[in-house]
Amino acid sequence: MTDASIFTEDVAGTQIKIVHISGQLDESNVDEKIKEVYHVLELNPKGLNLVCDLEKLEYMNSKSIGYLTDLYGKISDAGGQIAIANAKPNILDILQVVGLTQLIKTFGSIDDAKSSFSAQPAAPTVAPVAPASDPASPVQPVPAQPAVPIAQPTEPQAPQPTAQEPPKTA
C-alpha cells in the first residue's frame, strides 16, 4: 500500500475542522484512508466547515477526486462548507482538469480557507442523486453530481487560489 496519512485538527470554538492529508492517495489506499474524513462528517453531521490541507499531498487519483466530490455534496447538503488549502501545483492542475475547482474553492493558506467560511454563507446544496454504489465509504455515500460539464480540451490556467462562488446546481 502506498504511503498516505490523514489526520484531523479541531479549531477550538468553531465548527471548523482541518483534515491534513499527506503522501499519495491512489487506488491502493484511498478507500481505507478516506474513512477518516467520512468519520469527521459522521461526528459533525450538520454545518461542518471542513478545510482540506493538501500541503503535503503529492499525488491523488481520480477516485480520490470522486470522494472529494461526494464529500462536497454531503457537506453542502447539511449546510456546511468545504475548502481546499495549500495544494501543490500538480494537485491543483488535476483538480482543475476534472472541474472540481468549480465546486470547491481553493486557497493558498489554511487561514485564508478558514476566513472564507466566516465571510460567506453555506454553499447551495446539490441535488440528491443515485444510490451509493461504492461500499468503501463508511457514511452511506450518495455520490454528488457535480453538474460540471466535461471540461473542454483546453489547457487549465496556472494554478492560483480561487475564490469564486461555487456554481449553483439543480
Binding site: 477526486i65 470522494y67 488535476i94 482538469v97 468503501a136 455515500p141 453530481q145 457535480p146 460539464p149
Partner: peptide
C-alpha cells in the same frame, strides 16, 4: 465525453477527464 453527461458516484472520471483531456 458528451457535454451533458453527469458523473455520479466515486469512479468514472479518470478515463475521460484526465486521460481524455
Amino acid at each position: 465525453r458528451k457535454a451533458d453527461y453527469i458523473f455520479s458516484g466515486i469512479r468514472g472520471r479518470g478515463l475521460v477527464k484526465i486521460v481524455g483531456e
